[in-house]
Design a protein around this nucleic acid. Structure first.
Lengths: 104, 104
DNA sequence: GTTATGGTTTGATGACTATCGAACAATATC
DNA sequence: GATATTGTTCGATAGTCATCAAACCATAAC
């Protein structure tokens, strides 16, 4: 599996995080991860309505925003949230995103 | 002054709010309003680096996201945050946005 | 009415973005 | 090695967006 470079959360501007979450597809991915028991999920299990290429693109954006990280597991790439780091840099973000109710 | 139609917060998807805050200029406008004593500010007092047209465009986006509202005062248009409604629909958003520290 | 001030609307433009198919790379299984 | 599975990268395309200048509208002050 590929090795990525993950940004230091301190260097991620809030606008970048907002931009990452501004796409309904990406927001859905993050919410799916939030609901996951271990906070993990394989890439292919997201957004079955989108092509592999598109999902891969979304992952890149979320990665650049410092929100997710990957772990190789055989041929699979397991995605998980950078829970603690993000919470420290942007307190309340996870709670906000995970909130239910209202439209999308 | 013009009369605008303001969206019902319940109809505003979170992705729309994220998108509105994804632009550094708009994020700055909102932060400026958050720091304002009464939470109000005249349009011309924002972003002196941007043209009138651009600021007006940003206002439209923030309005569509349900974040701000306007009040006529003579020829001026006073902008203010929809503080309570937004807090009810997106609890923690103001605190998150108002947070200091880190890059932009 | 005329002038000034504050903001909107309209084009236009250049940049960015979401999306896909196809080709590619890495790993696992046979 | 051959095949299947997973995901990345490339190129293309259609759409969105931030930005500005210029024209416009509304209010206030003269």
């Amino acid at each position: 599996m590929k090795r990525y470079a993950y940004p230091n959360l301190a260097d991620v501007p809030m606008s970048a995080v907002m931009h990452a979450l501004a796409d309904p597809g990406r927001l859905e991915i993050v919410r799916q991860l939030l609901q996951q028991v271990g906070g993990e999920c394989a890439c292919g299990e997201f957004c079955e309505s989108l092509s592999k290429a598109t999902v891969s693109h979304h992952m890149r954006v979320l990665r650049a925003a410092g929100l997710i990280q990957h772990r190789a597991e055989g041929a699979k790439s397991i995605t998980f949230l950078r829970t603690k780091e993000v919470e420290k840099r942007f307190p309340g973000l996870w709670k906000l995103v995970g909130r239910k109710g209202g439209k999308i």
